[in-house]
Simulated assay, not measured.
Amino acid sequence: MSEPALHEPRAAQRLAWARTALGDAGATLERASTDAGFRSYWRASGDAPSRIVMDSPPDKEDVRPWLRVRDLLDDGGVRVPQVLARDVDAGFLLLEDLGGPTVAQAITDANADAHMQAAIAQLMRLQSLALPADVPVFGEALLQRDAGLFEEWFLRRHLGIELDCGDAERLELAQRRLMDNALAQPRVPTHRDYMPRNLMPVDGGPAVLDFQDLVLGPVAYDPVSLLRDAFLSWPEARVEGWLRDYHARAAAAGLPVPALDMFLRDADWCGVQRHLKILGIFARLHHRDGKPRYLADAPRFLAYLDAVVPKYRALDPLRELLERTIKPAFAKVTA
């Protein structure tokens, strides 16, 4: 997709800034990628080496949190994009071009082990960082917000469900148990979207993207985000093997992982909490933001829930809600 017509004010401003930052009056921009927020990424071509322009409209997505976390990660040895020029007030950054495919686009059955090993090594660097005292904690407030996304956007808005008293109690009980589990886990620096589409296979990498929401959070959260991805699925036996490998390496590195059986349970429960949240986010992207493509992955999340929830009696209220109410309503919506 080429740069939009220059009569669009933001497009003209972006191109003019890029040409000045590059020192190339003839440089052009082509869209490189977008994310689920308001940022967009543009590949600059011209006389200089290829660069990426990140456009973060200041009235919609302040670039300062992104820069702050980038610097924290970079200082701690985590591979992140290098910033070559910046205009914080205008919301423009000039970044190194890390290339085309993400890990999500490059990974196959044959090379998945190598990609996951590299991603786990990078994750352990991230989890080992010493964070400033003012970095947010993934605590009660964030967990309550995540829980609300599922009910408001996926159940009510997308499926058209108004829970009766019994179902509302089941959901509340299940969400409370998931939150209590997350709050009880040891805390480490947590990306919150550590998954293959946010990783770039480069030297010293994978390079980590979309890290601006870094918090101090549950130790099992990022490993399960990586291995039970929003956009890729792997056989459960393979996922458990990777989780066991992460656990052994993390324990050897001194990260605060619990005993293996407890860690595997914590990863399962963090995965359930995350999948419910992302169903809410994907529904919101569809209904509020006009981005329908994300909901195509909703069946993947229901399959994850089917694989994990029945393993735990404490999650029976959620299993009952899924079987009696959510899955029939989803079948009608997608028929």
Rank of each mutant, 00 (worst) to 15 (best):
C270R: 05
H275I: 03
A283S: 15
V272F: 06
D261S: 13
I326A: 00
D316P: 01
R293P: 00
R324G: 04
C270S: 12
F282D: 01
A329E: 04
E320V: 14
L322A: 07
L295A: 01
D306T: 06
V272M: 09
C270V: 07
K332D: 02
D289T: 09
I281Q: 02
V272P: 11
L321T: 01
L279W: 04
Q273H: 11
P328M: 06
K311D: 14
K291S: 08
A307S: 13
D266K: 05
A259T: 10
G271K: 14
L279D: 00
L321G: 00
F330N: 03
P317K: 11
K327S: 10
W269A: 06
E320T: 12
K332Y: 00
L315F: 10
C270L: 15
R265D: 01
Y312K: 06
R274H: 14
L322D: 06
H286P: 01
K291A: 09
R313D: 15
F301Y: 14
K277S: 01
D297S: 15
I278F: 11
L264D: 10
Y312T: 06
L279E: 04
P292K: 08
P292V: 07
K291W: 02
K332W: 03
A283I: 09
R265G: 00
V272Q: 08
D297H: 15
R293T: 08
C270H: 06
L302K: 04
V309K: 06
K291H: 05
A303G: 10
V272C: 09
Y294P: 02
R293A: 14
L305Q: 05
E320W: 09
A307Y: 02
P317A: 04
K332G: 00
L295R: 02
I281L: 08
E320C: 07
L279V: 08
F282E: 00
E320H: 10
R300F: 09
E323N: 13
L302S: 06
A307F: 04
V272T: 08
Q273M: 08
V308K: 03
A307L: 06
A283K: 09
P310V: 10
P292G: 09
H275M: 11
A314N: 08
T325C: 06
L260Q: 14
A314F: 08
Y312V: 06
F301L: 13
I326Y: 01
P328K: 13
F330I: 03
L295G: 01
P317G: 10
A267E: 02
H287D: 12
A314W: 12
A307Q: 12
F330V: 01
L276R: 03
V308W: 06
I278C: 13
A259P: 07
R324M: 02
D266R: 11
D316E: 15
D316R: 15
R313G: 15
K311C: 14
R274E: 12
K277Y: 13
P317W: 05
Y304K: 09
T325A: 02
L295V: 11
P310R: 09
E323I: 11
E320I: 08
V272K: 08
L260C: 09
D268V: 05
L276Q: 02
A296E: 14
D268A: 15
V272G: 09
L285W: 04
D306E: 15
R284E: 11
K332S: 03
D297R: 05
L285N: 04
L260P: 07
W269Y: 12
A259G: 15
R274S: 14
L315V: 06
R300D: 07
T325Q: 08
P310M: 11
G290S: 10
K311Y: 11
R300C: 00
V308S: 03
R319H: 12
E320Y: 05
L321H: 00
D266A: 15
